[in-house]
């Protein structure tokens, strides 16, 4: 029993150390990378893998079902929310030109420019979509999808 517990402790401490190392890498990446998208790439390392490792390590050490369920909840919540917030922030960053466009390999939003076709992530008090331009935009997108 005690040998098993020691083994569990060693594994848990290794997970905790790895997670802490990922947090340190995130800080270094945030400081060294050139624009918002690359900084976000560095900052998301501890958001998913680091938090997962630390949660597993903590769950092994804590050994109680209530704590384990709550740590599992935090991990699942991180995996659900990290892509959503990253998507929203990077979209705004592109529109605000906080992205080094000369360093992009693929730039699919470049032709779109102003959003004339609403896609469901605009605020409730946004000015109404203009039907004619939205229709033209939709037809253009459908044609581009067909040729692709």
């Amino acid at each position: 029993m005690s040998a098993l517990q020691t083994l569990g402790d060693v594994v848990a401490v290794a997970f905790l150390l790895l997670g802490a190392l990922l947090c340190l890498t995130a800080g270094i990446g945030l400081l060294r990378f050139p624009d918002v998208l690359t900084r976000m790439h560095a900052g998301t390392k501890p958001q998913v893998l680091g938090v997962l490792l630390i949660m597993v390590g903590g769950a092994i050490r804590l050994q109680g079902w209530s704590a384990t369920w709550m740590l599992l909840l935090v991990a699942v919540f991180q995996m659900l929310t990290a892509p959503v917030s990253a998507h929203m922030v990077s979209r705004v960053a592109y529109r605000r030109r906080h992205v080094r466009r000369d360093r992009l390999l693929v730039d699919e939003q470049h032709t779109a420019g102003q959003d004339r076709l609403y896609r469901g992530d605009e605020p409730a008090d946004a000015p109404p979509e203009e039907p004619a331009t939205a229709l033209a935009e939709r037809v253009r997108e459908n044609r581009e999808d067909g040729t692709r």
């Binding site: 848990a12 905790l16 997670g19 802490a20 947090c23 995130a26 800080g27 945030l30 918002v36 900084r39 976000m40 900052g43 501890p46 958001q47 680091g50 938090v51 630390i54 949660m55 390590g57 903590g58 092994i60 050490r61 804590l62 704590a67 740590l71 935090v74 991180q78 917030s85 922030v89 705004v92 960053a93 605000r96 906080h98």
Partner: peptide, 25 residues
């Protein structure tokens, strides 16, 4: 830029959460 600060705050909060979990563990 403001968005750099948003990304940094996000990472900082995640690191704080990780620190709390490490302490708990």
């Amino acid at each position: 830029s403001l968005l750099d600060r948003v990304v940094a705050t996000d990472t900082l909060l995640v690191i704080i959460a990780a620190g709390l979990a490490v302490h708990a563990g």
